[in-house]
Simulated assay, not measured.
Amino acid sequence: MAVEEGVTAKLRPEQFNSLHLPARPSLYVGDLHPSVTKADLFEAFRGMGHILSVRLCTDALSGRSLCYGYVNFLTPTEASIAMDCLNHTILKGKPMRIMWSQRNPIQRKTGVGNLFVKNLDPSINSARLQSLFCKFGTVLSCKVAEDNGKRKGFGFVQFDSEHSAMAALKSLHDTFVEGKNLYVSIPSSFSDFSD
């Protein structure tokens, strides 16, 4: 099972020294197609480094996929390379959303560094949205909302710091992208950032 190429920024080797890599080299992989298997995940990530384990989360009663899983690498650098190369690439017809596994959901639940973006042109996908925001800091997660494969014109961006989020908000709110006037704000509800 080959992973199709997607649009994502690539890190140069000298940039790894400046990264703040987490001690646990575990990646959350979300927005998976329901038919993706543990073997598919392993195959998609195996060229990125030494994989210690792969977990696909399933419903305890039905056994059906919950459409997310975890890939654990030997080193944080290998996990970082995998995230950079594979985030937003297509696996079984759907782009994977990859981020560092956050065992402690406090940052995600409190909304620190989170932004809501609306009035997006239908051509803007998650990879394009991330490319718009990544110049303001480290983006932990980025997602354009979809319904049955159709983009809904809004999305969410999570930065690693409030400072980066505020810089992005001030710079991008009320700007034009693809002919549409962006609305960027701090979301009122943070449930959309949950895994």
Rank of each mutant, 00 (worst) to 15 (best):
V3E: 03
V3M: 07
E5H: 11
G6C: 11
V7F: 15
V7M: 14
T8M: 13
E14F: 14
L21P: 03
R24L: 13
S26E: 15
S26W: 11
L27G: 01
L27E: 00
V29H: 06
G30E: 00
D31K: 14
S35T: 09
R46H: 12
G47P: 06
I51R: 03
I51C: 04
R55V: 09
T58E: 14
D59V: 06
A60H: 07
A60R: 14
S62V: 08
G63K: 03
S65V: 11
L66D: 06
Y68F: 15
F73G: 02
T75W: 10
T77P: 00
M83V: 04
M83W: 03
M83I: 04
T89R: 12
T89N: 13
M99N: 14
M99Q: 15
W100F: 01
R103P: 06
Q107C: 05
R108D: 01
T110A: 12
F116P: 03
L120C: 12
D121G: 00
I124F: 02
S126D: 12
Q130D: 06
L132Q: 00
F133R: 06
K135I: 01
V139H: 03
S141D: 11
K143T: 10
V144T: 01
R151Y: 03
K152W: 02
G153R: 01
G153Q: 00
G155I: 02
F156S: 00
Q158G: 03
S164H: 06
S164V: 10
M166E: 04
A168S: 01
H173E: 01
T175I: 11
G179S: 12
K180E: 05
K180N: 12
N181Y: 07
L182V: 05
S185N: 13
I186T: 08
P187I: 06
S188L: 14
F190A: 05
D195A: 05
